[in-house]
C-alpha cells in the first residue's frame, strides 16, 4: 500500500491494519543512520519481535538492548530524541514510512500488521541531523522568539486576575495553545526548507508553527500589545507571504491545530497592518 494516500484514508488503513495484526510476528525496521554532522548516512535493518501494543519507541528500545542488524552485524544502539511518550512533548518526531509523525504514538500494528512487513525510520529532513534520528530543532524555537511568542506581562508580582475571556475565545485560543513545537508542519511544508546557517533563520520561511503561535498571542488581550511587532516580523522576508498554501501543515498536525486558519488570520492581520501603516505614515 502506498503510504501517500489521503489522510483520512490513511487513518482507515491504519485502523484496518490494527484489526488484522498478526500476533507473534517480527517486523523489519529499516533505519537511516548517521554518526554525526558531516558524516555519511547508511541504512541498517533490524528484525524485531513485536509484542502487544508495541510502538516505534518500544522497538527502538529493543534495538538498544540488542543492537544487531539482520545480517548479524553488531552495531551501536540507535540514537533518537524522546521524552514524554504520550504525544504531548513533541520530542520523538521522525519520518516513518516516508511521512512525519511522532514515533511514540506510532503503533506497529497500524503500519506493519503482517510478519516480515517493513517499516522505515528516517530523521526529519528539514533540520540538521545530530546523530541517527536525532535532529537539532533549535530554529523552531528561535522562530518563536522571532514572532515574540509571549504575553508581555508587567512582572510576576501579584496584580490581580488576568483579562476576562469569553468561553468561545478560550476554546479558540486553546486549540492553538496545544502546539507542542514538534515540527511536523515544517517537515511536511514544501516552502520550509533546511537552513543550517543560523544567520539566515530570521529571513527564511517561518512556517505554520510560529505563524499560528503569533495568532495565539495576538488573540490575547495583553498579548495584543506586541501585535504590531509580530506583524512587522511576519510581513518581512520569510514571513506570512512566503506561504504557498499547500496546506500540508494542517494535514500532518498531530494535534489537529487549525494551522491554515491561522495562516488566513495572520494574512488578514498583515493586510490590515500594511493599510494601517500606509495611512498612518509611520514608516
Amino acid at each position: 500500500m502506498s503510504e501517500a494516500e489521503a489522510y483520512s484514508y490513511d487513518a482507515d488503513m491504519r485502523k484496518a491494519n490494527r484489526k488484522q495484526a498478526v500476533e507473534g510476528r517480527s517486523v523489519i525496521f529499516k533505519i537511516k543512520r548517521c554518526d554525526g554532522p558531516g558524516k555519511s548516512t547508511r541504512w541498517e535493518s533490524f528484525k524485531i519481535p513485536i509484542e502487544t501494543g508495541a510502538n516505534v519507541i518500544s522497538s527502538l528500545n529493543w534495538i538498544a538492548a540488542n543492537p544487531v542488524t539482520v545480517e548479524g552485524t553488531k552495531t551501536t544502539p540507535v540514537v533518537w530524541d524522546s521524552s514524554c511518550l504520550e504525544e504531548v512533548c513533541g520530542a520523538c518526531t521522525m519520518v516513518i514510512n516516508g511521512r512525519v509523525r511522532q514515533s511514540c504514538s506510532c503503533l506497529i500494528d497500524e503500519y506493519a500488521p503482517k510478519d516480515g512487513d517493513v517499516m522505515t525510520l528516517e530523521p526529519m529532513s528539514k533540520f540538521p541531523v545530530i546523530r541517527d534520528l536525532w535532529v537539532d530543532r533549535q530554529r523552531l524555537f528561535s522562530n518563536l522568539t522571532r514572532v515574540k511568542g509571549w504575553v508581555p506581562i508587567d512582572g510576576t508580582y501579584n496584580m490581580g486576575a488576568g483579562p476576562k475571556e469569553s468561553h468561545e475565545q478560550q476554546q479558540m485560543r486553546y486549540a492553538l495553545s496545544e502546539c507542542m513545537s514538534c515540527g511536523c508542519c515544517l517537515e511536511a511544508c514544501p516552502q520550509f526548507t533546511k537552513e543550517e546557517d543560523e544567520s539566515q533563520w530570521d529571513s527564511s520561511f517561518v512556517g505554520a508553527h510560529a505563524i499560528s503561535q503569533a495568532r495565539y498571542f495576538n488573540e490575547h488581550e495583553t498579548g495584543k500589545q506586541l501585535k504590531d511587532e509580530r506583524m512587522d516580523a511576519l510581513s518581512g522576508a520569510g514571513g506570512i507571504n512566503d506561504c504557498g498554501n499547500a496546506q500540508n501543515c494542517v494535514k500532518v498536525c498531530p494535534k489537529g491545530i487549525p494551522l491554515t486558519e491561522s495562516i488566513g488570520a495572520i494574512g488578514r492581520s498583515a493586510t490590515m497592518h500594511a493599510i494601517k501603516q500606509f495611512f498612518q505614515g509611520k514608516k
Partner: peptide, 19 residues
Amino acid sequence: MSGKGNTGSYKYGGNLRYA
C-alpha cells in the same frame, strides 16, 4: 524556486495543487 515540492510523500489534494 524557494520551495521544494514533496508530493511524493504527501499526496494531499492541497499539496498537489501547490505543485
